[in-house]
Computed example of a mutant assay.
Amino acid sequence: MTRQMILDLPVRQARGRDDFFVAPPNALALATLDDCAGWPSGRMLLIGPEGAGKSHLAAIWAETQDAPVLSAAALTDAEAPAAARHGAVVIEDAHRIATRPAAEEALFHLHNLMQAEGGRMLLTAASPPRDWGVHLPDLASRMAALASVRIGPPDDALLSAVLVKLFADRQTKVPRSLIPWLVGHMDRSFDAARRLVAALDARAVAEGRPLSRAMAAEVLDMRA
């Protein structure tokens, strides 16, 4: 069987509101972000596992607020004044800030500046602040005091929608009947969906074949 070269092409992620599938596991998170006027002290922490849609929700909120989206691990003090001028900011992957003293200091200063200016701050993380390993005591106490909302484990409808979106982001054609079959046979997590779609896409490209249930069964067996 002829195998094709796999090109490391960028995945084009759809991040608009119309691309976000609302289901019971994420409905409260979406409603909470929509009602940011009611956030305690203008702060909110969005918690969810890898692939749950935190970045998608953050992008929706950032667009409505004209807010910059900054990576917690790469945060610098130089970014704080510009973020404060916007009146709103998104800090992505806050759980990755530990062991980065400069980033911890920058987040501490940005938090205080946004509070002083009356701005809003949305943070995303895969776990609650107690699990981040933050070393700066003042930052740890502020993060622990944040109001938070969670994205729950996916139900069948949400997992199906996630699979459809992941395939669409890769511009990969998938038979409609394959989605419910995958949902019934894969590990039930957002991260498992992401890894499965990547593996199926790579296999289809490498072998020059369309996706099928037989191919999916082979890939799932290989990953078991």
Rank of each mutant, 00 (worst) to 15 (best):
L9R: 12
V205P: 00
G208C: 03
A125N: 08
D221N: 04
H185T: 07
A116Q: 15
L7R: 13
A73N: 04
P68K: 11
A161Q: 08
A83N: 14
I151A: 03
W39M: 10
R100W: 01
R12H: 15
L113Q: 13
G87K: 12
G53V: 01
M1I: 13
L163Y: 14
L136C: 08
M215D: 04
M121N: 02
V69I: 15
G38W: 08
A74P: 06
A62L: 02
V205M: 13
T76N: 09
R120Y: 13
L158R: 02
G184N: 08
D155S: 09
A31L: 04
A144E: 07
L136W: 12
N26D: 12
D19F: 03
P81Q: 14
G152A: 13
H185D: 00
D8N: 09
N112E: 02
E117V: 14
R194P: 00
M143W: 13
L57C: 06
L33G: 14
G87D: 06
A62N: 08
L30T: 06
M143Q: 08
S212M: 07
A144L: 05
R120P: 05
R100Q: 10
L139T: 11
R130I: 13
A80H: 06
I151G: 09
P153K: 15
L200Q: 02
S160M: 14
A192I: 04
G51W: 12
V197T: 11
F20A: 10
I97W: 08
D201F: 02
L123G: 01
A168G: 05
V164Y: 02
R209W: 02
V90I: 13
S55K: 08
I60N: 12
D34L: 12
P154R: 09
E105N: 13
F190H: 15
R15G: 00
A157W: 01
P153M: 15
E92P: 03
I179F: 11
R17S: 14
T124Y: 14
P210A: 01
G48A: 05
H95S: 00
R213A: 12
C36V: 01
E207W: 04
P154C: 11
W39R: 09
A198K: 15
R12E: 15
V22W: 09
V22R: 13
D8H: 06
W61K: 12
G87L: 04
P25S: 10
A216F: 14
P68S: 06
F190Y: 15
V162F: 13
V90R: 03
I91C: 07
D18K: 01
D131R: 07
L220H: 09
V11M: 09
G42V: 09
G53L: 07
G42E: 01
